[in-house]
Simulated assay, not measured.
Amino acid sequence: MQVVDLRSDTITKPTLKMREVMAQAEVGDDVYGEDPTVNRLENMAAELVGKEAALFVPSGTMGNQLAVMTHTQPGDEIILGQESHIFYYEVGGFAKLSGVQARTLDDSIGIFSGDDLKSVIRDDNIHYPKTGLICLENTHNRAGGVAITKEKTDMICKVAQKNNIPIHLDGARLFNAVIQLDIEVKELVKNVDSVMFCLSKGLAAPVGSILAGSKEFIEQARKNRKMLGGGMRQSGIIAAAGLIALDERVEELQVDHDLANRLAKGIKEAGLKAIDIKEVNTNFVILEVDEDVYTTDEVLEILAEHGVKMTYFGSGLIRAVTHKDLSVGDIDYVIEVMNGELLV
């Protein structure tokens, strides 16, 4: 049976070239700052996003949590979207690791408004916590992979700068936004104080993310990384794949976006009464299920019986994510299965 895995772009396998450079990577002890491959990756990443320095971390979640920990003090309040990854999917890490509380805003379209932000920034009052950080996300996962424009990002940055509050950008799929918006990554993140992006999603490296910001910020984040157990030794073996990811995979993300649009178009043209396309952004396709015909779980089970894997995304919603390990033939097979099994 053919298997087409659309659950996430995290399931991508490293390329043959990545495997080759990993085997041959020059390594040293990175905790001592002596791994030349890690140093190259961090320098390349910092230059790419236009920041002074960068830090290689095992995961995007660790990168985000390090950003919160480094920007804030215990007792601070952070402002972030109620659907953001940091709030929704990171196990309450900011509360336990950084001792901060969250003030959430409506980011159902991928970003909250400047007016909403202004309304929740704390005054200097003895009763209030300090607003220590504002967090954004691009692309925004739970908003359906939507790419947030520079104009919208800068609008929030302007409010933050006026109030002397740092901004951290969770850019797990930052380069999908860059491709979608046709903008240089330096420009897109120019006005944020720190940015995290993953190497292990659409860029297809097997593991690792980057946290970037000022030199002083990264120095402290490096110490915090050690405290959290993220100090890696001969990590050039995995950093080598990250170099290939940044050098060769960024432009290829357009193929993933094209596959997402092909899938959406095919489902629409099939005329399935129980399935509609809620939205298509970057490499995400969000399917809306008419639960008067099928439950969401029933649709997922029917697809799974034919080797098609997608993700439950809430009542009546299914997420499909395209990535480098899928072909046009795979997408057409999914459309064929849906047309054959879900046509009511």
Rank of each mutant, 00 (worst) to 15 (best):
D5S: 14
D9Q: 06
V21C: 02
D35A: 02
V38G: 03
L41W: 00
L41E: 07
N43R: 14
A45P: 11
L48C: 02
G50D: 00
A54D: 00
A54L: 08
L55H: 06
G60V: 00
G63V: 09
Q73C: 03
D76F: 09
E77P: 05
I78A: 03
I79C: 10
G81E: 01
Y89M: 15
E90N: 13
L97I: 15
G99N: 00
Q101E: 11
Q101I: 11
A102G: 06
L105H: 01
G114E: 10
G114W: 07
D116Q: 14
R122A: 06
D123T: 12
H127Q: 14
H127F: 13
L133Q: 04
T139L: 09
H140W: 09
R142F: 15
E151I: 13
E151P: 13
E151A: 15
T153H: 13
M155S: 12
K162S: 10
I165K: 05
I165N: 04
P166V: 01
S194D: 05
V195R: 00
A205L: 08
V207C: 11
G208V: 04
S209Y: 01
S209H: 00
L211Q: 08
E219H: 06
Q220W: 04
A221C: 12
R222G: 06
K223V: 03
L228S: 13
G231M: 13
M232N: 10
M232T: 09
Q234R: 15
A239H: 03
A241D: 01
L243N: 00
L243D: 03
L243C: 07
V250E: 08
L253E: 05
V255G: 03
D256V: 03
D258T: 13
L259C: 05
N261E: 13
A264S: 14
G266N: 01
I277V: 15
N281P: 06
N281R: 09
N283K: 09
E288N: 10
T295K: 07
E301H: 10
K309R: 14
M310V: 05
Y312C: 06
R319Q: 06
G329F: 09
Y333S: 05
I335G: 08
V337D: 04
M338S: 08
N339F: 02
G340H: 10
